[in-house]
């Protein structure tokens, strides 16, 4: 039998939906819904976590993320400019830093900042307590990644932009600040947001520094609730609260990308 192209397409489409429906049906009937909701969706357990889940845990997660991001971005920018410097030792130092910190686990760096440095310099301490240690401990690693992202962004700005700026009498520094970097940052907004999202999740490592009830973040908070209630619902709550941070971020990126497209 000869089938028309349209008929063949329609049959393929219907078959696709049928397969999907069967898979969903199988998953739904295989799951033990009573046990699932008893384990992961206990409203009384969830309710007992509030308001601390938001006023302390979520808040601290956001604060840690922002502190580490600002530190990492600043250091990352410096490293990126060093990588592009005409002075060889600067390039060399930046490359060494980036290779080192990209190659180390964030947890190891956090241990080093939280325990290694205080042991080595007992008479000095990182200002800001846990907040300071987290900023540096997570920021050092983030800076290595962001440096490479920013460098790529700077190099993606056409050379003619710098030439046009220099031709107008701007110094190299002025041209970088007013012309090249603003355009480079527009280019790297999507990868940098990725970096924030990764950092948000890396703040779950902070518990190794020994947080208190005021400096606790989401994952540790959920873990503690899990222990006291002997029920995994807190993990679901924490997971949803992480999404409260990361989903608007992706939304923000989309908005910024739309704006950048208009201006290019």
């Amino acid at each position: 039998m000869v089938m028309s192209r349209r008929r063949r397409q329609r049959i393929a489409r219907v078959a696709g939906y049928v397969v999907l429906a069967l898979v969903i049906l199988a998953a739904v009937s295989a799951a033990d819904w009573g046990r699932l909701s008893e384990a992961f969706f206990r409203l009384d357990v969830a309710r007992s976590m509030f308001p601390q889940a938001i006023t302390v845990a979520l808040r601290n997660t956001i604060v840690y993320t922002l502190l580490a991001f600002v530190f990492g971005l600043t250091l990352g920018l410096v490293l990126a400019l060093m990588r592009l410097s005409s002075i060889l030792p600067y390039r060399w130092l930046a490359t060494a830093y980036i290779e080192l910190f990209r190659g180390l686990p964030a947890l190891l760096v956090l241990f080093m900042v939280g325990y290694g440095v205080p042991l080595a310099f007992p008479d000095r301490e990182i200002p800001g307590g846990v907040y300071g240690s987290v900023t540096v401990g997570l920021g050092l690693t983030a800076a290595a990644y962001m440096a490479e992202t920013i460098r790529a962004g700077i190099q993606a700005v056409p050379k003619g932009q710098l030439e046009a700026a220099r031709t107008l009498g701007m110094s190299h520094t002025r041209a970088m600040v007013s012309i090249v970097l603003p355009q480079a940052f527009r280019i790297v907004i999507p990868p940098l947001t990725n970096e924030i999202i990764l950092l948000t999740k890396d703040t779950s490592l902070v518990y190794v520094l020994g947080v208190t009830s005021t400096t606790i973040e989401l994952t540790k908070f959920a873990g503690d609730s899990l222990n006291t209630r002997v029920n995994p619902t807190p993990l679901v709550v924490a997971g949803l609260l992480y999404l409260v941070i990361t989903l608007p971020l992706s939304q923000l990126v989309r908005g910024l990308e739309r704006r950048a497209r208009r201006e290019r």
Partner: peptide, 13 residues
């Protein structure tokens, strides 16, 4: 010295 380029090189942002 004013300079005008083949590719315009206006500042896109």
């Amino acid at each position: 010295i004013g300079m005008v380029f083949q590719q315009f090189n206006l500042f896109g942002h």
